[in-house]
């Protein structure tokens, strides 16, 4: 149990997918102007990551990795070069599926999160998480926990930036620094604050 808590703490605070690995920056910068929308996007990312991480884990484990097809008697086939294309397709398909299911069963949630879902397919943090879990050789539960933790880390980062940006409206920022430039500097400061967590010995 403690091991899984460690994975979450690590992926949220210490190796934050956004603040340390820079993944998911595009949507991070364009969505973080408003707190409400950033919460929406953050939740959608948590949701999609918690689903795609175990899905891609299973696909890699039983179809793509070296010797993964041995259950079908094809142990000599190594399809790991297809990893990237299969992962991104799985992500796109999952996002589509989630969108349809949400629309059918929870219209209220769909109204709030639905608009963010198409953005998520090309969010690097989703593909990045799937690739990391293969590289780190996680098992099924670890992958799911890691997916959830990465999503939570993204959520935390984007909501904190959005709240800080809200405050920035009252400050006198040089015109050419406004927008992306300032967002970058703020992210740097938040990232620096998060570095403080790396002293935690787990």
């Amino acid at each position: 149990m403690q091991h899984y808590v460690n994975i979450i703490i690590n992926s949220v605070f210490i190796e934050n997918i956004l603040l340390i690995y820079f993944l998911g920056m595009c949507s991070f910068l364009s969505i973080s102007k408003k707190v409400e929308t950033s919460i929406g996007l953050g939740l959608a990312v948590i949701f999609v990551l918690s689903i795609t991480a175990p899905a891609n884990w299973a696909i890699n484990e039983y179809l793509l990795a070296d010797g993964a097809l041995s259950w079908a008697g094809l142990g000599h086939i190594n399809l790991d070069f297809l990893q990237f294309i299969v992962f991104i397709s799985v992500i796109a398909a999952m996002v589509q599926l989630v969108e349809m299911l949400m629309d059918r069963f929870s219209p209220a949630l769909y109204v709030n999160l639905g608009i963010f879902l198409p953005l998520i397919t090309v969010n690097c943090s989703i593909l990045g998480t799937s690739l990391f879990l293969v590289e780190r050789e996680y098992d099924l539960i670890e992958s799911t926990v890691f997916g959830f933790g990465s999503g939570l880390g993204f959520f935390l980062a984007i909501v904190s930036l959005a709240t800080v940006r809200k405050r920035m409206r009252y400050s006198n920022v040089p015109p050419t620094l406004r927008g992306v430039g300032m967002a970058m500097l703020l992210t740097g400061l938040i990232s620096m604050a998060f570095l403080g967590f790396s002293g935690i010995s787990l």
């Binding site: 820079f22 050419t176 620094l177 300032m182 970058m184 500097l185 740097g188 570095l195």
Partner: peptide
């Protein structure tokens, strides 16, 4: 990582 954010922020500023 913060170093990257700061430098990119400053480069964007200069470029803009």
């Amino acid at each position: 990582s913060p170093g990257a954010f700061f430098i990119l922020g400053l480069i964007v500023w200069a470029h803009r």
